[in-house]
Design a protein around this nucleic acid. Structure first.
Lengths: 225, 225
DNA sequence: GAATGTTTTTACAGATTGGTAAAATTTTTC
DNA sequence: GAAAAATTTTACCAATCTGTAAAAACATTC
């Protein structure tokens, strides 16, 4: 009975949320915050339960285990990010490379500064991939990175070799993950306020400085010679 | 009596290591590996003791607490890296920018592939800086990043504005941390073996592609116009 | 309204954790 | 070689962890 509960993740035939569904959503939302703050092992079910305002065994009642909760969180979170990511790219391909990248960055930074969880969850957990005690939910991280790249390739007319496009993407995204996932550390090195507009501007400047020339080469491979 | 033990970290007046000093070194070496594999909280004293081949309370006898052990590990580790880093730069400033960067990268990758702990310890712990339960040893991470930048600035004649040099450095180092600290994840996205020579070459290519043009602009600010 | 299903709460359990204290053992000092 | 110091081992502890089971409470169905 309980296993059906856990697997039943489509809600499109329910007219209104029951109590169970409300509790479930509250746990998911709380877990999202806690998993974004701490690596999986340090993100205790007690912390999640407190943040959700529920009794701890409800986590197991609704999700089966902490690892399955992480999976559910990661699946939802990255799916939302993918959808949002599509919208970041609207109209970008019609602009010159630098302007296009600038617009994309504005949108991406708007989203990720309001929703820091994807970047943080990636950063705090990515190094545990490949460990013996790896949990299944971690695999959403590389899958997500690949998905984002496909979205980008489909929307922006890049002309370089696929391996170079992948390199571009991976470098770009890893810097986003580092700068947004470890804001306190980076901002401390820079002497900035991690939540301030200067730090956001710094990220944008850094990424434009680094990636705009490369993007131009990928869009117009012969015109910069 | 025990607090004197913990604080007594200079050994330059002892003719030969006693048993205690040997045990201490074994704990430090084991802790280095465990702290490089797991975030601080997940790096249990039991794991460290097992890796060191000692009984667990010896950690407290020699170091006082897990957090203090982390501090001792981080201090040693980053100091060693700083010294090694000096040698990576020998002769680099006499080469053209791309060649100099290539040589530096070869040396840096040689070192960090044999000693992955600095990058890993940074990556698995950097996002916890600024958290309420932050431990003092974490502060070695931003301090180390600043120290490395100073070493670089002293050895390589960069002409750009200090803020741009810092940006260059921070972008460069964060990518190294990501690519070396989370090898399994990155290599999975790339479809490579994380310990294979192709992945190492990929890192080098990525960093050269991204940073060689920028480095040239920082060394010869007017000659590329 | 009773029976059934769902949700929540309470209690429990084994395992693990960081740390402490005391006993045992080893080493050093005189 | 006895005493003192250093080191190691053993035993213990409170706290925390994830997870389970049962009881209680609530909601739904007929």
């Amino acid at each position: 009975m309980r296993s059906n509960r856990v697997q039943n993740s489509s809600r499109n035939d329910l007219p209104e949320e029951g109590k169970g569904e409300k509790a479930r959503e509250r746990i998911l939302a709380a877990a999202r915050q806690v998993f974004a703050q701490y690596p999986f092992k340090a993100a205790s079910t007690r912390l999640i339960a407190e943040a959700a305002g529920i009794e701890r065994p409800l986590i197991h009642y609704y999700f089966g285990s902490k690892a399955k909760l992480f999976e559910a969180v990661a699946r939802d979170l990255f799916e939302e990010f993918n959808q949002a990511h599509l919208s970041f790219l609207q109209g970008v391909e019609r602009l010159p490379p630098r302007e296009g990248l600038s617009l994309y960055l504005d949108r991406l930074l708007d989203y990720t500064l309001r929703h820091p969880e994807p970047m943080r969850i990636i950063l705090v957990n990515m190094a545990q991939i490949g460990n013996l005690d790896e949990i299944p939910g971690y695999q959403y991280i590389p899958l997500h990175l690949e998905e984002i790249r496909h979205i980008l390739e489909n929307k922006v007319p890049l002309q370089g070799p696929p391996s170079e496009i992948q390199m571009f993407f991976l470098c770009f995204n890893n810097l986003m993950i580092s700068f947004l996932g470890a804001k306190s550390c980076q901002a401390q090195v820079l002497g900035l306020d991690p939540e301030g507009p200067e730090y956001r501007q710094w990220i944008k400047d850094a990424l434009l400085t680094l990636f705009a020339p490369w993007l131009a080469r990928l869009i117009f491979p012969d015109s910069n010679r």
